[in-house]
Each structure stands twice: as C-alpha cells, then as structure tokens.
Design a protein around this nucleic acid. Structure first.
Lengths: 228, 228
DNA sequence: TAGATTGTTAATCGATTAACAATC
DNA sequence: TAGATTGTTAATCGATTAACAATC
C-alpha cells in the first residue's frame, strides 16, 4: 500500500526510455526491426508500417507499436515509422554505434569463417587479433588477419583495451579459456562452443549454441510429420 | 460452458506426453539438458539432480522437474535422474534418433565451416551433398565433400529423398533459394542468412541469425557499462 | 472529412515460481 | 527413521493480445 501511494505521488519525470532493461524477447525483436529497416532502406524505402514490420517478424502489429513506443520511436498515423528514425534509435538502444574491438580465440573452421565474414562490421565489430594455441596454425593468414599465438593475446587485450572476445574453441577448453579471458578484463564473450559458460555477473555472455538450433529444427520437422 | 463440460466428462486417457507441442522456450531447455546429460555421461557420471541441471542451465530447479515430468522422464528421490533415461527420452522427443540427410547450399566461409564441423553428426545429421552456384568453386573439396553445381541439387534431393537443407548463401539470394528448395519438397531449412525466411506453414525454418546474437551481446555490455 | 495508422489502456494468456506433498 | 530429492498443485508474474482512443 504505502509503496503504491509513493509511486502515485511521485511526479512522472520524462525518463529516457532506454534506461530500463529490456527483456530478451523484446531485444530479439528490436534487432530484427533494425535489420529489416536497414535492408528496406537499402532498397530505397523510407517508411515502414507496424503492420508490415509485424508481418516480416511474424508478430502482432500491436506489439511492434508497443516496442517502438518503448524505445521512443514515434510514427506518423497513416504513414508509419520513418526508417531513418528506426535505424538510428534502435542502433543507439542496441549499442550498435561506434566500433567494438574484439579478439577471436580459436582459429578452427568456425573461427576462420567468422574472421572472414565482413557482415558484422556493420555493427561496428572490429577484430584486433585472432589467436590459436596450436603453433602449427600461428603465422597463417585468414584474409587480412595473421593468426597469433595465445601467448600474445594478453598483451593485445591490454594494449587495445579490448572488451569483447569471440570464443570459437573446442567445447572441452571453452570454460577454462573463458575463465582466463575474464581474468584479462574481458567484459563480453560471444561463445560458439556448445557449452553454457559460467562467468561472473559483470561479464556478459551470449551462447550461440548451434546444436540447440538444430535440435529445435529436427523437433519441428518431426512434429510436422507426426501430425500427418 | 458446453465445452468445459465435455472436457470434464471425457475420460483422461494416458496420452503419450510428447504429443502436445512444446513451446520454444521449453525446447531450448530440453536441448540443453540433453547436451549436459551427454557430456556428463562422457565424464562418467550416472545421475543428475534437478538442482545440478538447474544450476548449469541457470533456471529454477522446479522448472527442471516440470520439464522432465512433461516429457515423461521420472527421477528417483534422493538420487536424481538417470542420465541414460534423460539422453534416450530427450533424444526421442527432440527427434535426434536416426540419421537426417541434408543438403548444404552455399559454400562460402560459413558454409564450408559447417560442412567441416563433425559435431552435428551426434544428432544424426548427414550431409549428402554440398552445393554452390559459383562454378569456380565446383569440384573443390571440403574435407570429404566435393562441391557440386546447383544444377545437380534437384536430382540429389530427389534421389536421396532429402528433407532438410542448410542454407548458407548471401542474404540477397536466401529467399529465392528457399522458395526453390520448398518447391523441391524440402521440409526443413536451417537458415544462416541474416533474413527471416517466409515459407509455407508445412515447411519448418530455424533462423540462425547471428547478427541478432551480436546485437544482444552488445546491448548487454552497454547496459553493464551504463550502470556503473 | 473519412480513412488509415499510431498509441495506450485493459484483459487474457501462458510461463515461472512458491509451497508442499509424495517417495525412496 | 530421517533426510533428501522428486512430483504436483496453486499463486504469481510478465508478456501478448484485444479494444479503442488519438492523430495525421
């Protein structure tokens, strides 16, 4: 009771709407909106309606409007949302502005694929070094990157003040490597090893567990066949 | 009203619990349990408690028990769940039994990385052909696979009765390629192009949109820094 | 103006958590 | 037996959807 009175009494100040932490599902949609807006912009469109976005993301139009309202993107009745606004604002919210230096650990097939992929530069991702503990790989080139020995990783992180690591090592060594990265001051780990990493709460992890995606697809196919 | 009466009146038959479709979030957890069980088994453990699973998946122990009950895995008080049961039953539910033939379309860096990766064979995934429309790539080897021309894809799908495709083509051609695959009778697409594919409802798609993962990580890192 | 679309509040739905009983 | 752990029902919480008002 007392609490609700307090809340009622307090003046509603115009808080920057980004401040409250977004739930995961919302973030996922926001990232999709952003992606669609970028692509639509490249195709020469200038406005997107909540209905069209909803259609592309397979979600209710009301939710698109709510999401947009939540991040402070305002649309125009009868027209829709201005694509420039969507890209700018969602880019801010998602933290896609500026460059993000990262190290990549593990130059196996997946690691080199990621090192070669240029699409992430759109998000400001920049690899300042790629590393492997296998000395046979050290010195080889992956596009413009030279594979460096793990021994050099520590100083690269320190010198470039790297905050983010991409982890593409075998499952077995993923956790110890992550522990080591955390000790070097890494704040975010994009993990492609099929393990759920344990890290201190100040470190953020995104587990890109591809096997889980495969399992989900196999389940869906199986369901569809069973229904028949 | 009438409906609820009908439901009440109907005898509760012991339906195989798998039949009702699992929500996405649940599936994700099930796939993780399976992964953990496999790994724990390899390490020589024989039982897993709901608490330990909950800890590894960062979820409430009650939910683990509910999930297990939902798929029909029964545990033993004071002991936990028998790892063999967990692997077998979850494998069945997720459709990880038997082999799943698949074609891979697009032998760029990500495509070849996936073609090289052997970890998915654990789920019964078997590549019966890898394809590229770039004739300069055709004939080259990716481990034990030879890159085939797209022109051959149709007959491979027909001859091997392939139901699943892995799509690792550029974003631009992803949708038309998917449309074509659907016409060839493909039932499931594992899509790595950064586009949400539109397919008929009888075709299942898993969008493995890595850029969304990156965006989510960047957001989390940004949030953590802002909080300070 | 009429119509289309955004914006917002209220209702619904479903997933998660809490509490506790059952069981080895 | 006592204790630990599973299993299940009820309460809570939060996300989604529905309804409708506001606006260009």
């Amino acid at each position: 009771m007392a609490r609700s009175v307090t809340r009622e009494g307090a003046k509603r100040r115009p808080v920057a709407k980004t401040e409250k932490k977004m739930p995961r599902v919302v973030l996922k949609r926001l990232a999709r909106y952003h992606q669609i807006a970028v692509r639509s912009g490249e195709e020469g469109q200038t406005y997107l309606s909540s209905a069209s976005l909803a259609n592309l993301v397979a979600v209710d139009a009301t939710m698109v409007r709510k999401d947009m309202a939540a991040v402070g993107v305002t649309g125009r009745p009868k027209v829709g949302y201005f694509i420039g606004d969507v890209i700018t604002r969602l880019g801010e919210v998602l933290g896609l502005v500026g460059t993000h230096d990262a190290v990549l650990i593990g130059c196996g097939s997946l690691g080199t694929a990621i090192a070669r992929y240029t699409g992430f530069s759109r998000f400001g991702l920049k690899l300042v070094g790629i590393f492997d503990s296998d000395h046979a790989k050290v010195g080889k080139a992956v596009d413009s990157h030279l594979i460096l020995p793990m021994e050099k990783c520590k100083s690269v992180i320190r010198i470039f003040k790297v905050k983010m690591a991409i982890l593409t090592v075998p499952a077995r060594v993923a956790q110890p490597t992550a522990d080591w990265l955390v000790r070097q001051g890494i704040q975010g780990i994009w993990n492609f090893a099929p393990v759920d990493l344990r890290v201190p709460s100040h470190v953020k992890v995104r587990d890109e567990n591809l096997a889980i995606g495969l399992a989900q697809l196999l389940y869906a196919i199986q369901q569809a066949n069973r229904a028949k």
